[in-house]
Design a protein around this nucleic acid. Structure first.
Length: 858
RNA sequence: GCGGACGUGGUGGAACAGGUAGACACACAGGACUUAAAAUCCUGAGGGCAUAGCCCGUGCGGGUUCGAGUCCCGCCGUCCGCACCA
C-alpha cells in the first residue's frame, strides 16, 4: 500500500472546507454560542512554534465545540502596529505599511497551512484605518466618560533616539537601541484612568473561576491594594503640613524621621534654594529608573534641616530628609520612618544615627527585655512605648489610632493601590494617531467624530531620529476645531497595547462602519468563552482588556464587565541548545550525529549539548514550523504539540518526538484504510447487530470508554491524556483485526474505526477527513456531530479487586462489578496466598472497598 | 526579601475523591522480514536478591491511616512572577 501523502491531502481538504464555507459564522441568538479566541499574532513574517502550539490548542477546542453543537466563533487578526515595522523602515528603506502587509500575507498562508478552523471573513489588521478609526472614536468616548486625562509624568527619555522608552527597553540605565544614558524627564502624556476601576478590577478577579489561579494572583499583586492611613505632619516654619501614607499607622509612636521622594514637590521647592540638595536630587536621577539600578543603590538621604512635629506627641519633632528610596508615584511620595519595624527605615536610621524606638513587641516578651538590633521586627505582637495604644494587639491599635487621627483632623484611614494610570502616548509613527488637536489658546481639543479617521500620512521619512509624524512638513498643521486658529495635531500615537485591548470585541462585528461595535453582535458573542495564549501577557494585556471592557460598558457599547470568561495559558515550546567548541550557539539544523553517535556540527567538530530552553533566536534553538509542516504535514505537527506534555506546561520539541508522531499518522492511515478495504467490513450506517463475540464486545467497550474519556479530557484541556487514550484505542483496533471473523467483529471494527476517526478529527483534521471518506462517507467530517458514548458499554462487567495483606498487594481477584462486600471479603479470605499469610488465624480486621480493594489486617 | 508552582523509571508524563505506582509515548535491547539498510511487526524492561517468591521504591526526615505519589508538620532543590510600594 502506498504511503500517506500529507501535502496533497491537507491542501485538498483545506480547499474543501473553504468551498463549503464550513467555518463562517453568523450571529444567531437561536443557537448556543461559543467564542474561542487565541491571542492574535504580531505579523513578524513567519509563524514560530509558540504560534503552532497556541493555535493548535485553540483549534482543537473550536472543532470540538462545533461538533458538540455550538455556534462557534473562531476568528483571526493581526496585532499590526509596533516598532519593528519602523526599524525595518529605517534599516531597509521599506515603508512600515508595506512591510507589515507583506508579512501578514506570508503569515496568513502559513497559518492556513495548519488547517485551522477559522472564520477568515472576519480577519482584520489593527494598522488598517478600518480598525484604528474606531479606536480613535473610542478614545473620544473614553474622554467623554472621564476615563482619559492629560498630565505630566516621569518617563525614560532616550536623548539620541529622541523618544520615550518603556522600562523594559532600558537596560542598565542605557537605551536598548542607542546605548545612550537614559534621562528621567517630565513629559505631558495621555493617560487612561485605569485606577478609576482599581476596586472593580480587583474584585472582578474573584468571579473569573475559569482563569488560572496564578494569573489572578499576579493581577491581584499588580493592583496591590493596601489599607492604611494618611497622616498630616506640621512642619516648623511652614504653612502647609506634610501628608504621608503608611500601612502601619499603629507604629506612629516609633517614628523618628520623615523622608521625601527626590521628586516630591517640597523637595523640588527646597532644592531651588539649596544647591547641595539640587546636586543630591540630580544624582538620584542619574541612577535611572531600571529596577536593577534601584535595587543596587544604597539607601541615602539628605537632611533638609526642617523639623516636622509629631502629631500625637506634644513638643516632639523629627528631622525631615530627602531619601533616594522613596517613590514619588506611590502614596503621597513621603513617609514617616519607623526604624524599629521597617527594614529600610532601620538601614537608613543606622546610617544616619537616628533613634530606634520599638513600639511593637511579641506578646510574651516583656517591654523591658525587648530591643531591636539589626533586624526590624515586622511580626505580630502588642504595642508598647505608645501611650494610649499600649498593650493593644496590632490590628486594634491600627483601628484606634486612625479613629484618634480622624477625630482630631490629623489624618484619615485610606486605601492605597499600587496600580498606576496607563500612559499611552508614544513618540512613534507606526501606531494609532491620537485624535486631539493642541491649540495655543484653547488647549487640547478633541477632534470631532465626523472628522475621523485621522489617517497616518504615508510620505514619512525615517532618516533622522525622533518622531516621523512630528517631522512631517504638513500633517500636524491644522486649525483649531474650537477657535479656528492655527493649531497642531497631537503627533504621538497610542501604545500598541490599546490596539489589543478591544480586538476581541471588534471580531463580533468586524466590518461595521458606523460604529466600533454592533450591539446585537457583542451582546450575543461576548464574553469570549475561551481565551488561549501565553502566560507572558498575564498582567498587562489582560488587565488592559479588562479595563477597556469596563470602559466600553461605561460608554454604552456593551453590557459585560469581563472580556474573557475562560483563560488558558499554554506553556512554552523548548528545545535543546547546542554550542560549538568556540562557544557559538548552533542551530539544530547544523547539528548531526556522526557514525559513532556523537553530536557534531556540519564540519564534523564536536558539539556540546546545553540545557533545554525556550526556543529563541538568540540561542538559535528554534525549529521552523514551515519546514516541519512541509515535510510531515500539519496534522503530525499538531499531534506532536498535543502529545506527552500537559498543554499548560513547557514542552520539549525533539526530532524523535515529531518522528514518533509521524509514524503514528502513517500507522493510523494504514490501519483504517486496510480495515475499510476489507470486504468483511459492513457498509456505513448498518444497524447494530444483536449479539457480539467476547472480543468484539471488549472492543466496543473500549471504544465507548474512549469516547467518554476523550470528551472529558478535551473539556478539561487534558490533551496529552486524550492522546494516550487514542493510542490505546488504536493499539486495540490493530490487534482486533486478527479476530475479524468473530461474531459482530466486523461491525465493531467499523464502529471502532469511525469513532477513532471522529475523535481524532479536532487534532488531526485533514487525516480524519481523508479516512472518513475512505470509510465510505461523502459528507465533510468537519461539520459532523461528536460521537456519543453508550453508557451501558462504559462500565466493565467484571472488575479486578486488589487484595492486600497489611497494606501490601498480595493477590488480584476478578469479580463481577458491584459485588457485595461480604462476597469480596470471603473471596479474598479464601485466596490461596492470603491463606498462607493467615496461617489459620482469624484476621484482626478486613477493610473492603467495593470494586477496588480488600485489605486483610493481621 | 515577598508570593506562587513543581519534584514520580534512561526521558516526557499517567495514576478520578486516600485504595493495584509507572498508563501512553520517546529512547533502549532482543527477535522476525531483508543480500543489506530503512520502514514495519513481535517481545522485553523501576531497582535489587537467595527469582514459583520476597525486599526496596514517587526529592529528604517525621506524622496521621487498615492503606499515603496523594493529607499534615519540618527540611532540601528547581522554576516562575513581583520587588526600596512605606
Amino acid at each position: 500500500m502506498s504511503r500517506y501523502n500529507p501535502k496533497e491531502t491537507e491542501s485538498k481538504w483545506q480547499k474543501a472546507w473553504e468551498t463549503a464555507d464550513c467555518f463562517l459564522t453568523q450571529t444567531d441568538p437561536e443557537r448556543p454560542k461559543y467564542y474561542v479566541l487565541e491571542m492574535f499574532p504580531y505579523p513578524s513574517g513567519r509563524i514560530h512554534m509558540g504560534h503552532v502550539r497556541n493555535y493548535t490548542i485553540g483549534d482543537v477546542i473550536a472543532r470540538f465545540k462545533r461538533a458538540r453543537g455550538f455556534n462557534v466563533l473562531h476568528p483571526m487578526g493581526w496585532d499590526a502596529f509596533g516598532l519593528p515595522a519602523e526599524n525595518a523602515a529605517a534599516e531597509r528603506d521599506v515603508h512600515p505599511a508595506d512591510w507589515t502587509y507583506s508579512n501578514i500575507d506570508a503569515m496568513r498562508a502559513q497559518l492556513k497551512s495548519m488547517g485551522l478552523s477559522i472564520d477568515w471573513s472576519r480577519e482584520f489588521a489593527t494598522c488598517h484605518p478600518g480598525y484604528y478609526s474606531h479606536q480613535q472614536a473610542l478614545f473620544l468616548d473614553f474622554m467623554q466618560s472621564g476615563l482619559i486625562e492629560r498630565r505630566e509624568s516621569w518617563v525614560n527619555w532616550d536623548p539620541v533616539d529622541q523618544t520615550v522608552l518603556a522600562n523594559e527597553q532600558v537596560i542598565d540605565g542605557k537605551g536598548w537601541r542607542s546605548g545612550a544614558d537614559i534621562e528621567r524627564r517630565r513629559l505631558s502624556q495621555w493617560f487612561f484612568r485605569i485606577t478609576a476601576f482599581s476596586d472593580e478590577l480587583l474584585d472582578g478577579l474573584d468571579d473569573l473561576e475559569r482563569w488560572p489561579e496564578k494569573v489572578r494572583l499576579m493581577q491581584q499583586n499588580w493592583i496591590g491594594r493596601s489599607e492604611g492611613a494618611r497622616v498630616f505632619f506640621d512642619i516648623e516654619g511652614r504653612e502647609e503640613p506634610l501628608e504621608v501614607f503608611s500601612t502601619r499607622p499603629d507604629t506612629l509612636y516609633g517614628a523618628t524621621f520623615g523622608a521625601l521622594s527626590p521628586h516630591h514637590p517640597l523637595a523640588v521647592e527646597l532644592a531651588e534654594r539649596d544647591p547641595a540638595l539640587k546636586d543630591f536630587i540630580a544624582e538620584c536621577d542619574r541612577l535611572g529608573t531600571s529596577e536593577e539600578a534601584i535595587e543596587k543603590a544604597e539607601k541615602r538621604g539628605y537632611d533638609t534641616g526642617l523639623r516636622m512635629r509629631h502629631p500625637l506627641v506634644e513638643g516632639k519633632t523629627l528631622p525631615l530628609y530627602v531619601a533616594n528610596f522613596i517613590l514619588v508615584e506611590y502614596g503621597t511620595g513621603a513617609i514617616f520612618g519607623c526604624p524599629a519595624h521597617d527594614q529600610r527605615d532601620l538601614d537608613f536610621a543606622r546610617k544616619y544615627g537616628l533613634d530606634v524606638i520599638p513600639v511593637v513587641r511579641p506578646k510574651d516578651v516583656p517591654s523591658a527585655e525587648w530591643s531591636i538590633r539589626n533586624e526590624a521586627y515586622t511580626g505580630d505582637g502588642v504595642l508598647c512605648n505608645s501611650d494610649f495604644l499600649n498593650d493593644l494587639p496590632v490590628p486594634d491599635a491600627k483601628r484606634k489610632v486612625i479613629e484618634r487621627l480622624e477625630a482630631e483632623g490629623l489624618g484619615k484611614g485610606t486605601v492605597q493601590f499600587r496600580l498606576r494610570d496607563w500612559g499611552i502616548s508614544r513618540q512613534r509613527y507606526w501606531g494609532c494617531p491620537i485624535p486631539v488637536i493642541h491649540c495655543p489658546d484653547c488647549g487640547p481639543v478633541p477632534v470631532a467624530k465626523e472628522q475621523l479617521p485621522i489617517e497616518l500620512p504615508r510620505d514619512v521619512s525615517f532618516d533622522k531620529p525622533g518622531n516621523p509624524l512630528d517631522h512631517h512638513p504638513t500633517w500636524k498643521h491644522v486649525n483649531c476645531p474650537s477657535c479656528g486658529g492655527a493649531a497642531q495635531r497631537d503627533t504621538d500615537t497610542m501604545d500598541t497595547f490599546v490596539d489589543s485591548s478591544w480586538y476581541f470585541a471588534r471580531f463580533c462585528s468586524p466590518r461595521a462602519e458606523d460604529t466600533p461595535l454592533e450591539r446585537r453582535d457583542v451582546d450575543y458573542w461576548l464574553p469570549v468563552d475561551q481565551y488561549v495564549g501565553g502566560i507572558e501577557h498575564a498582567i498587562l494585556h489582560l488587565l488592559y482588556s479588562r479595563f477597556f471592557t469596563r470602559g466600553l460598558k461605561k460608554a454604552g457599547y456593551l453590557n459585560v464587565e469581563e472580556p474573557f470568561a475562560g483563560l488558558f495559558t499554554q506553556g512554552m515550546v523548548c528545545h535543546e541548545t547546542y554550542r560549538a567548541q568556540d562557544g557559538r550557539w548552533l542551530s539544530p539544523e547544523d547539528v548531526t550525529r556522526d557514525s559513532a553517535g556523537a553530536l557534531v556540527d556540519s564540519d564534523g567538530n564536536p558539539v556540546s549539548v546545553g540545557r533545554v530552553e525556550k526556543m529563541s533566536k538568540s540561542k538559535r534553538n528554534t525549529v521552523d514550523p514551515a519546514e516541519i509542516i512541509d515535510s510531515y504535514g500539519a496534522d503530525t505537527a499538531r499531534w506532536f504539540m498535543l502529545s506527552d506534555s500537559p498543554p499548560d506546561r513547557e514542552m520539549e520539541w525533539t526530532d524523535s518526538g515529531i518522528e514518533g508522531a509521524w509514524r503514528f499518522t502513517q500507522r493510523l492511515w494504514r490501519l483504517v484504510r486496510e480495515t475499510a478495504e476489507d470486504k468483511l467490513l459492513p457498509p456505513a450506517g448498518l444497524a447494530c447487530p444483536k449479539s457480539f463475540g467476547e472480543k468484539a464486545l471488549g472492543l466496543r467497550r473500549q471504544v465507548h470508554k474512549t469516547i467518554q474519556g476523550m470528551t472529558e479530557d478535551i473539556e478539561a484541556f487534558h490533551f496529552n491524556k486524550a492522546v494516550a487514550r487514542l493510542y490505546e484505542l488504536t493499539n486495540t483496533l490493530s490487534s482486533a483485526t486478527a479476530a475479524r471473523n468473530e461474531e459482530g467483529m466486523a461491525w465493531a471494527l467499523r464502529e471502532g474505526c469511525e469513532s477513532l476517526v471522529r475523535l481524532i478529527a479536532p487534532m488531526m483534521p485533514h487525516l480524519a477527513e481523508e479516512l472518513w471518506q475512505a470509510l465510505g462517507h461523502d459528507n465533510l467530517l468537519a461539520v459532523q456531530d461528536w460521537p456519543v458514548a453508550d453508557t451501558s458499554l462504559v462500565q466493565d462487567e467484571t472488575v479486578t479487586i486488589a487484595v492486600q495483606v497489611n497494606g501490601r498487594l498480595r493477590a488480584k481477584l476478578q469479580q463481577p462489578r458491584d459485588s457485595e462486600e461480604s462476597v469480596l471479603r470471603e473471596a479474598a479470605l479464601g485466596d490461596e496466598t492470603v491463606q498462607r499469610y493467615l496461617e489459620g488465624k482469624e484476621p484482626r480486621k478486613v477493610v473492603v472497598v467495593p470494586n477496588r480493594i480488600v485489605n486483610v489486617v493481621l
